[in-house]
Simulated assay, not measured.
Amino acid sequence: MVKVFTSSVINTNIDKVWMKIRDFNALPNWHPAIANSAIENDEPSDKVGCIRNFNLKEGGNIRERLLALSDLDYFYSYLILESPMPLKNYIATLQFKPITDGNLTYAEWTATFDCDRQEEENLIKLVGDGVFQTGFNSLNQIFIE
Protein backbone atom coordinates (compact mmCIF):
# COMPACT_ATOMS: atom_id res chain seq x y z
CA MET A 1 0.00 0.00 0.00
CA VAL A 2 1.22 3.48 -0.93
CA LYS A 3 0.63 6.53 1.28
CA VAL A 4 0.77 10.13 0.09
CA PHE A 5 0.86 13.01 2.56
CA THR A 6 0.83 16.69 1.62
CA SER A 7 0.39 19.63 3.97
CA SER A 8 0.27 23.38 3.60
CA VAL A 9 -0.73 26.60 5.30
CA ILE A 10 -3.65 28.49 3.78
CA ASN A 11 -3.42 32.23 4.36
CA THR A 12 -6.89 32.78 5.81
CA ASN A 13 -9.06 31.52 8.63
CA ILE A 14 -10.45 28.01 8.66
CA ASP A 15 -14.11 29.01 8.26
CA LYS A 16 -13.41 30.77 4.94
CA VAL A 17 -11.46 27.77 3.66
CA TRP A 18 -14.10 25.28 4.79
CA MET A 19 -16.93 27.24 3.17
CA LYS A 20 -14.99 27.19 -0.12
CA ILE A 21 -14.24 23.45 -0.21
CA ARG A 22 -16.95 21.85 1.98
CA ASP A 23 -19.28 21.23 -0.95
CA PHE A 24 -18.11 17.87 -2.33
CA ASN A 25 -19.15 19.10 -5.78
CA ALA A 26 -17.17 22.38 -5.60
CA LEU A 27 -13.85 21.15 -7.05
CA PRO A 28 -14.16 23.28 -10.22
CA ASN A 29 -14.50 26.37 -8.00
CA TRP A 30 -11.09 25.95 -6.39
CA HIS A 31 -8.99 23.27 -8.09
CA PRO A 32 -7.48 24.38 -11.42
CA ALA A 33 -7.28 20.86 -12.91
CA ILE A 34 -11.05 20.27 -12.79
CA ALA A 35 -13.23 21.23 -15.77
CA ASN A 36 -16.66 20.38 -14.34
CA SER A 37 -18.36 18.23 -11.73
CA ALA A 38 -21.80 16.83 -10.93
CA ILE A 39 -23.27 14.80 -8.11
CA GLU A 40 -24.98 11.72 -9.51
CA ASN A 41 -28.69 11.02 -8.95
CA ASP A 42 -29.35 14.61 -7.81
CA GLU A 43 -28.26 13.76 -4.27
CA PRO A 44 -27.12 16.49 -1.87
CA SER A 45 -23.38 17.13 -2.18
CA ASP A 46 -22.87 16.69 1.57
CA LYS A 47 -24.69 13.36 1.82
CA VAL A 48 -22.33 10.56 2.83
CA GLY A 49 -22.45 8.04 0.00
CA CYS A 50 -23.06 10.56 -2.78
CA ILE A 51 -20.94 10.21 -5.90
CA ARG A 52 -19.22 13.10 -7.65
CA ASN A 53 -18.47 12.62 -11.30
CA PHE A 54 -15.98 15.10 -12.73
CA ASN A 55 -13.87 15.75 -15.79
CA LEU A 56 -10.27 16.90 -15.85
CA LYS A 57 -9.29 19.84 -18.03
CA GLU A 58 -6.56 17.74 -19.65
CA GLY A 59 -9.00 14.91 -20.32
CA GLY A 60 -10.19 12.00 -18.25
CA ASN A 61 -13.13 11.32 -16.00
CA ILE A 62 -13.11 10.42 -12.29
CA ARG A 63 -15.92 9.18 -10.05
CA GLU A 64 -15.59 9.40 -6.26
CA ARG A 65 -17.83 8.44 -3.33
CA LEU A 66 -18.03 10.62 -0.20
CA LEU A 67 -17.22 8.42 2.81
CA ALA A 68 -17.35 10.95 5.66
CA LEU A 69 -17.83 14.67 6.19
CA SER A 70 -17.47 16.58 9.46
CA ASP A 71 -18.21 20.27 9.92
CA LEU A 72 -16.96 19.98 13.50
CA ASP A 73 -13.57 18.55 12.51
CA TYR A 74 -13.32 20.26 9.08
CA PHE A 75 -12.67 17.18 6.95
CA TYR A 76 -14.06 14.87 4.35
CA SER A 77 -12.94 11.47 3.13
CA TYR A 78 -13.67 9.84 -0.20
CA LEU A 79 -12.74 6.89 -2.36
CA ILE A 80 -12.15 6.66 -6.07
CA LEU A 81 -14.62 4.44 -7.90
CA GLU A 82 -13.29 5.02 -11.43
CA SER A 83 -10.19 6.82 -12.68
CA PRO A 84 -7.80 6.85 -15.63
CA MET A 85 -4.93 6.53 -13.11
CA PRO A 86 -3.52 2.98 -12.73
CA LEU A 87 -4.40 2.59 -9.05
CA LYS A 88 -6.97 0.83 -6.89
CA ASN A 89 -8.30 0.98 -3.33
CA TYR A 90 -7.72 4.74 -3.28
CA ILE A 91 -9.02 6.46 -0.14
CA ALA A 92 -8.22 10.10 0.63
CA THR A 93 -8.93 12.60 3.39
CA LEU A 94 -8.80 16.39 3.08
CA GLN A 95 -8.64 18.01 6.53
CA PHE A 96 -8.13 21.50 7.92
CA LYS A 97 -7.15 22.75 11.37
CA PRO A 98 -7.05 26.29 12.70
CA ILE A 99 -3.71 27.98 13.27
CA THR A 100 -4.53 30.49 15.98
CA ASP A 101 -1.25 32.37 15.64
CA GLY A 102 -2.12 34.59 12.70
CA ASN A 103 -5.63 33.27 12.05
CA LEU A 104 -4.36 30.88 9.37
CA THR A 105 -5.35 27.34 8.36
CA TYR A 106 -3.30 24.15 8.40
CA ALA A 107 -4.29 21.94 5.45
CA GLU A 108 -3.56 18.24 5.14
CA TRP A 109 -4.46 15.92 2.25
CA THR A 110 -3.62 12.24 2.53
CA ALA A 111 -4.29 9.21 0.39
CA THR A 112 -3.59 5.51 0.41
CA PHE A 113 -3.84 3.24 -2.61
CA ASP A 114 -2.49 0.14 -4.28
CA CYS A 115 -0.65 0.15 -7.60
CA ASP A 116 1.97 -1.77 -9.53
CA ARG A 117 5.44 -1.16 -8.13
CA GLN A 118 6.70 0.38 -11.38
CA GLU A 119 3.88 2.99 -11.21
CA GLU A 120 4.42 3.89 -7.54
CA GLU A 121 6.90 6.79 -7.84
CA ASN A 122 4.99 8.38 -10.71
CA LEU A 123 1.64 8.16 -8.89
CA ILE A 124 3.04 9.54 -5.63
CA LYS A 125 4.28 12.60 -7.55
CA LEU A 126 1.06 12.94 -9.55
CA VAL A 127 -1.21 12.72 -6.50
CA GLY A 128 1.00 14.63 -4.05
CA ASP A 129 2.16 17.44 -6.31
CA GLY A 130 -0.24 17.42 -9.26
CA VAL A 131 -3.43 17.06 -7.25
CA PHE A 132 -2.89 17.91 -3.58
CA GLN A 133 -0.26 20.67 -3.70
CA THR A 134 -1.83 22.21 -6.80
CA GLY A 135 -5.13 22.42 -4.90
CA PHE A 136 -3.47 24.05 -1.88
CA ASN A 137 -1.63 26.53 -4.09
CA SER A 138 -4.91 27.46 -5.74
CA LEU A 139 -6.61 28.00 -2.38
CA ASN A 140 -3.80 30.32 -1.35
CA GLN A 141 -4.26 32.31 -4.56
CA ILE A 142 -8.00 32.56 -3.88
CA PHE A 143 -7.43 33.79 -0.34
CA ILE A 144 -4.73 36.40 -0.97
CA GLU A 145 -5.61 39.05 1.56
Rank of each mutant, 00 (worst) to 15 (best):
M1L: 13
M1I: 14
M1P: 13
V2I: 15
V4D: 10
F5P: 00
T6I: 04
S7G: 03
S7R: 13
V9F: 00
V9E: 13
I10N: 06
T12P: 02
T12V: 11
T12E: 04
N13Y: 12
N13Q: 13
N13L: 00
N13I: 02
K16L: 13
W18Q: 02
W18R: 03
K20H: 04
I21P: 04
R22E: 11
R22L: 05
D23M: 05
D23K: 04
A26Q: 09
L27K: 13
N29K: 14
W30K: 08
W30H: 11
P32Q: 09
P32D: 11
P32C: 07
I34T: 08
A35E: 15
N36H: 06
N36T: 08
S37V: 04
S37G: 01
I39L: 09
E40A: 06
E40Y: 01
E40L: 15
N41P: 03
N41C: 03
N41I: 01
N41R: 05
D42K: 07
P44I: 00
P44G: 01
S45E: 13
D46Q: 09
K47Y: 05
K47L: 13
K47W: 02
K47G: 04
G49M: 05
G49H: 03
I51E: 06
R52C: 01
R52V: 05
R52M: 05
N53G: 03
F54N: 07
L56N: 01
L56G: 00
K57P: 04
K57H: 10
E58W: 01
I62H: 08
R63P: 02
E64L: 12
L66R: 04
A68S: 14
A68D: 15
A68W: 02
A68E: 15
L69K: 13
S70V: 03
S70N: 10
L72D: 15
L72F: 10
L72M: 09
L72V: 15
D73M: 06
Y74Q: 01
F75R: 01
F75N: 02
F75I: 06
Y76R: 02
S77H: 03
S77C: 09
Y78T: 05
Y78P: 00
L79D: 12
I80R: 12
L81F: 04
S83A: 10
S83R: 13
P84D: 10
P84L: 07
M85W: 11
K88I: 10
